[in-house]
């Protein structure tokens, strides 16, 4: 399964970034092969508005089936739903490796509604 982890740096050793829409990196991990690849999300961070929507489009294009993150605003949530991408919720900052392990062990709850007001712009 292809999982995207929102991260503050380019490897899974870095702490995860709890904010989906304005995460610095998306790390695409393949749970079967164990491979991970970083995607720099800086262009979306600089969007004049709608960063969360753009981020959702980006992870959809990466082929993700699940996003592991801490908070998702209403617009990003709607976009991820439309793309059929599930959201697994991490409540506190931890290394990306830890977040991925907990996801694989089914320890992370699935988010079924937006849990942040987001930042409007």
């Amino acid at each position: 399964m292809k999982v995207v982890i929102t991260a503050s740096g380019p490897t899974l050793a870095e702490p995860i970034d709890l904010h989906f829409g304005r995460a610095k990196y998306f790390i695409l991990a393949d749970t079967e092969t164990g491979r991970a690849k970083a995607h720099d999300n800086t262009p979306n961070l600089q969007a004049r508005q709608g960063a969360g929507v753009q981020s959702a489009e980006t992870v959809a294009n990466l082929g993700a089936e699940v996003v592991v993150t801490g908070s998702v605003g209403p617009k990003a949530y709607r976009a991820l739903q439309a793309a059929g991408i599930k959201i697994a919720l991490v409540e506190a900052v931890c290394p990306g490796t830890e977040a991925l392990r907990r996801f694989k062990d089914n320890e992370l709850p699935v988010l079924d509604k937006p849990n942040s007001e987001g930042h409007w712009v």
């Binding site: 304005r22 004049r48 508005q49 930042h119 409007w120 712009v121």
Partner: peptide, 12 residues
């Protein structure tokens, strides 16, 4: 225009 984004940036 877009002082809203500058506000977000200052807060961040």
């Amino acid at each position: 225009e877009n002082s809203g984004k500058l506000v977000s940036l200052v807060r961040e």
